[in-house]
Computed example of a mutant assay.
Amino acid sequence: MKTASVLMSALMAGAMSLAPQAFAQTVHYPGGKSTFDGKCAVCHQAGGRGMDGLAPPLVEYPGKYAGTSEGRAQLGHTVMYGMFGPIKVKEKSYNFKMPSFASLSDEEIADVLNYVVFDLNAEHGAARPFDAAEVKAWRAGPLDQTAVHQQRASVIKGLGL
């Protein structure tokens, strides 16, 4: 019995020493991570895991959105112009007024979107990276937060989410 206890203690110690490595995040977009950590993580939390009732997780839907032009525009418009109103993500409800981050440069918005889609989302299908030119094109047709909310509903329906 004492041998089993010693063995269990050794296994636990080994597992604990590996834990930080097992959950280490590979970051391909460090500029986007920096922007996310400074502007977005306060509500969406570190790693984009979300905060119940307040801000939805960003670890699944953005990867799915990024594969369509409508979804890509919705992601960009959400960051640029903000969004408010009730939404559901995986049967959980959120109702938060996301602020506008239009003051970020086109490059910063592209970087943060790339971080969210490619570093936080394990699956992103055939999505291609965002670039500043794409963000600049979205700025040419500004939306208010209500329109961004309606756009999201259309994207969700189109993707069957």
Results as ranks from 00 to 15, higher is better:
F23N: 10
V27F: 05
H28N: 15
G31D: 14
G32M: 08
S34F: 12
T35I: 15
T35C: 10
F36G: 06
D37M: 13
C43S: 01
A46K: 15
G47D: 08
G48V: 10
G48H: 11
M51Y: 05
D52K: 14
P62W: 08
P62K: 05
G63W: 13
K64C: 01
G67P: 03
G67C: 01
T68M: 00
E70N: 12
E70T: 12
Q74C: 09
Q74T: 13
L75T: 08
L75F: 03
H77Y: 14
V79N: 03
G82K: 04
M83T: 00
G85C: 08
P86T: 14
V89Y: 07
S93E: 14
S93H: 07
N95C: 04
N95W: 03
P99A: 11
L104F: 14
E107L: 12
A110Y: 06
D111R: 05
D111F: 05
D111Y: 06
V112H: 08
Y115A: 09
D119L: 11
N121T: 11
N121K: 07
E123G: 01
G125C: 08
F130M: 08
F130G: 01
A132F: 13
A133T: 05
V135L: 15
A140Q: 15
D144V: 07
Q145F: 03
Q145E: 14
T146E: 14
V148R: 10
H149N: 11
H149Q: 12
H149A: 11
Q150M: 08
Q150C: 01
Q151G: 07
Q151V: 01
I156F: 04
I156T: 10
K157P: 01
G158Y: 04
